[in-house]
Design a protein around this nucleic acid. Structure first.
Lengths: 249, 249
DNA sequence: CAGTGGTCTAGACCACTGG
DNA sequence: CAGTGGTCTAGACCACTGG
């Protein structure tokens, strides 16, 4: 606690310096800063690295540490529907459309990397934001990984929360595929748009800490209400291909 | 060179250890490893941190360093169309549909953060992969930032390449918005699909090193040929909200 | 070539976990 | 409470840049 608080504080002091300087400004040399804040240079450098990672600073060997002329680049992070809506300032809610136990078909088995025929829980939920339909979500969960899971456990609240609380499964990452499609009449009806309206189809495979595949979800988002946003960085030559042929990028 | 080569080599040795152990395995304690490889513990820890960032290792205070049961998480990185197609094993090419000089309207001016009425270069290109239409791209470039740029400079090859070679502008990051839409008859004709086919609309704002907005691009991708893929990590509690109320996530 | 950030070292203590 | 990863220190030298 003591320790990490110290770095927090150091970072706070640096942030004040950065704000005082403004864009395009320059920070004093590291040796000077470490003395001023009474920390070892390496300790200071950790905080500087964090600030650099957040996009606030640019460091150039031999030149100096400069205040970045760019707003913070928000790293893409995996959020549940509930979390994402809250972040957008909307109140999330859910309506359970259906739930059933099924046996994994070939396609689902392949995606979830389980044996075909394994028992799955299929949940269809209408996801709402401020009471208005936003997405139609179909989730597949492996029963083997989540013994005793009941559909009603998932009616309210975030799936990720339930997984963590009841099964100690922490979601660690996900692979998402985003496509454009048009809605069937059923789907359109549930989402309250005309049939054949365009829709973002987002498929997600969520992995837990240990690499277990926990969830496969298919969500149809209303194209008029939802857009997927992402900020990406141009690859830094962090790992310049140890000694092999150069990448043809 | 000497130095960085040393860490490369250290990392290589660690990789061999990791492979030898396999998933779920465990690395020896840091103090032992640093002795074995004859480096300071902090130096070893840097390499370990890099490997952790790449998703190969998980470190747990008090417990140990474990070999991650998960394949490397590919960080999303900004690629040009050409680069992306090459990475997918497809041969990219372009066909210039039109190019004109226009004055920035209110909307474009706002996005590019320039004065309305400023001169812009508008380029429409059909982007092909293995000779087949993949996307229809409209790019807007600020003339002020790129004096003397001619449309024919951009017919072949990557825009990013031209920017870097001719103007020393290195693209650093981009904001992308992804929506679903349907194609107009014109657009559908160019992309060689039936009218009103679904399409992924990807808007991109590219920023250079200094934060300058270099490009605004709108691309319509064939929904049947293109899907956007992304791997995202669940947020680590890296910054646990300095001292404020906890996030309601 | 003075000044800057980048890397590395040897050693200390802290925070957390349960081999 | 032994062992582990996490943090920090004071100091050295390297690599790069052009105030």
């Amino acid at each position: 606690m003591e320790r990490s608080r110290k770095r927090q504080q150091l970072k706070q002091q640096l942030l004040e310096l950065i704000e005082a300087q403004g864009e395009g400004g320059r920070l004093p040399p590291e040796r000077e800063l470490s003395e001023r804040f009474a920390v070892a240079r390496e300790t200071l450098r950790r905080s500087l690295r964090e600030l650099e990672d957040e996009g606030l600073l640019e460091r150039k060997q031999g030149a100096g540490t400069f205040i970045s002329g760019q707003p913070v680049l928000k790293q893409p992070q995996l959020l549940s529907f509930s979390e994402e809506m809250l972040e957008r300032g909307l109140q999330p809610s859910s309506r359970l459309i259906s739930s059933r136990r099924i046996a994994a078909g070939a396609k689902l088995a392949q995606r979830l990397k389980i044996v075909p025929g394994s028992p799955l829980l299929e949940l269809r939920r209408l996801r709402l934001a401020n009471e208005a339909p936003m997405a139609l979500e179909t989730v597949y969960l492996s029963q083997a990984l989540l013994p005793g899971l009941e559909p009603q456990d998932l009616v309210r609240g975030s799936l990720y929360e339930v997984l963590e609380r009841q099964y100690g499964l922490k979601i660690r990452s996900a692979q998402q595929q985003i496509q454009a499609t048009v809605l069937s009449e059923d789907e359109a009806g549930l989402l309250d748009v005309p049939p054949f309206s365009p829709s973002l189809l987002i498929e997600r495979l969520s992995l837990a800490q240990g690499g277990e595949i926990v969830e496969y979800a298919k969500s149809l988002y209303r194209a008029d209400r939802y857009r997927f946003e992402i900020q990406v960085q141009r690859a830094k030559p962090v790992l310049p291909a140890p000694a092999e042929a150069p990448d043809p990028l």
